[in-house]
């Protein structure tokens, strides 16, 4: 550490906790159609998510969460470890600008990776988790191309979850992996699964495939 060396912003975060990072981005549909029970269940699911992650000390240091909601597109939180993550209370309003949410979210991932690299912190392949009950109301073709390119370069893994009412046809044109259909409103099961999967990944070796538990919350 020479005297003249610049310390980039964010260095304190990594000086304090230099563990490899396992970033996970949630893209959540909060459009009008989610109003009522669905959004309530989603909020409950996010609270469960935090609780379950908190039980795993290693995951608490390695997993990083970010949330972007759409309807309208908004960054609810940028990447941060679960101890700092406060489960939000989402409300529903507006249309479904899914394309803009995906593009914005993928940009956040690019920036986060650059920060990891600048700070010499190893990282796992990021996860992007899209949850929607509708169809995009904006143009999504460019976002779909970004998703395809990113998956091909192994830049991230993109998973789409279709809630009842979602346009599965468009989702399967956005996501390279086949979209999973949420059975009923089992958001809590979904997030419990996501938490244990992230715990699992954060204990695994970077760059090695991990066999995840079958998603019990999905329709077969």
């Amino acid at each position: 550490m020479s005297d003249l060396e610049q310390i980039p912003f964010g260095a304190s975060e990594f000086a304090e906790n230099p563990e490899p990072r396992c970033p996970c981005l949630l893209l959540l549909d909060t459009s009008q159609s989610m109003a009522g029970v669905p959004i309530e269940e989603l909020n409950q699911g996010l609270a469960t998510f935090k609780q379950e992650l908190a039980a795993d000390t290693l995951a608490m240091k390695r997993v990083e969460l970010a949330i972007v909601t759409f309807g309208p597109v908004q960054m609810l939180s940028d990447f941060q470890t679960p101890d700092r993550f406060m489960p939000p209370n989402l409300t529903s309003s507006g249309d479904t600008p899914m394309g803009a949410a995906i593009s914005g979210g993928l940009e956040m991932i690019r920036q986060r990776k650059a920060t990891y690299k600048a700070n010499g912190v190893p990282y796992y392949r990021p996860w992007v988790f899209l949850i929607t009950d509708g169809a995009p109301t904006d143009s999504w073709e460019a976002a779909a191309a970004e998703v395809r390119a990113g998956e091909e370069q192994r830049g991230f893994s993109f998973l789409a979850v279709a809630v009842e009412g979602a346009n599965v046809d468009i989702l399967s044109r956005i996501s390279v992996r086949p979209p999973l259909k949420l059975s009923g409103l089992r958001f809590r099961d979904l997030f419990a699964w996501l938490s244990s999967s992230l715990s699992h990944v954060s204990r695994s070796q970077i760059g090695q495939g991990v066999r995840l538990a079958p998603p019990g919350w999905a329709e077969v």
């Binding site: 964010g10 960054m75 941060q80």
Partner: peptide
């Protein structure tokens, strides 16, 4: 940090 990123994100989106 969070607020700054959220604001910059909103400016783009």
């Amino acid at each position: 940090q969070q607020l700054r990123n959220q604001i910059l994100f909103a400016r783009t989106s």
